[in-house]
Amino acid sequence: MKVLAAMSGGVDSAVAAARAVEAGHDVVGVHLALSRMPGTLRTGSRGCCTIEDSNDAWRACDKLGIPFYVWDFSDRFKEDVVDDFISEYAAGRTPNPCMRCNEKIKFAALLEKALALGFDAVCTGHYAKVIRDADGNPELHRAADWAKDQSYVLGVLTHQQLEHCMFPLAETPSKAEVRAEAEARGLTVANKPDSHDICFIPDGDTRGWLAERIDMTPGQILDHEGNELGEHSGAHAFTVGQRRGLKLGRPAADGKPRFVLEIRPKDNKVIVGPEDLLTVDELRGIRISWAGVPIDEVESGAEFDCMVQVRAHGDPVNARAHLEAVPGEPSTLVARLPEGMRGVAPGQTMVIYQGTRVLGQATIDSARSTVWDPAKVG
Rank of each mutant, 00 (worst) to 15 (best):
V3Q: 06
A6W: 01
S8T: 07
V21K: 07
D26C: 11
V28E: 10
P38S: 05
G39I: 08
T40F: 11
R42G: 07
R42V: 14
T43L: 15
G44R: 08
S45Q: 15
R46D: 08
C49S: 15
T50Y: 11
I51T: 12
D53A: 04
D53H: 07
A57Q: 04
I66K: 06
F68Y: 12
K78I: 14
E79S: 14
V82P: 02
D84R: 12
F85Y: 13
S87T: 11
Y89S: 09
N96P: 05
P97L: 12
P97V: 14
C101F: 08
N102L: 07
E103Q: 12
K104S: 10
I105C: 08
K106C: 07
A108G: 06
L117W: 10
A121R: 15
V122T: 09
V122Y: 09
C123V: 13
G125E: 07
A128M: 04
A128W: 05
I131D: 10
A134Y: 12
R142D: 12
R142I: 02
R142S: 13
A143Y: 07
A147T: 11
K148G: 06
D149S: 03
S151W: 00
S151C: 01
Y152L: 01
G155S: 15
H159A: 13
A170K: 03
T172Q: 14
A180G: 06
A182T: 03
A182Q: 03
E183C: 06
K192D: 04
H196W: 13
G208Q: 03
I214K: 03
H224G: 00
H224D: 03
E231M: 05
H232V: 00
H236M: 06
R244W: 12
L248N: 01
G249Y: 09
G249F: 08
R250M: 10
P251F: 02
A252D: 08
G255A: 05
R258V: 10
V260G: 01
K269P: 01
I271R: 00
I271M: 00
I271K: 00
D276M: 09
L277V: 00
L278T: 05
V280Y: 01
E282P: 00
I288D: 05
E297H: 09
E299D: 11
S300C: 04
A302H: 12
C306K: 03
H313W: 14
D315S: 15
P316K: 08
R320L: 14
A325T: 15
E329Y: 09
P330G: 02
P338I: 12
E339K: 13
E339R: 13
G347M: 04
G347F: 04
Q348P: 13
T349F: 04
M350Y: 03
Y353R: 13
G355C: 11
T363K: 07
A367S: 06
R368I: 09
R368T: 14
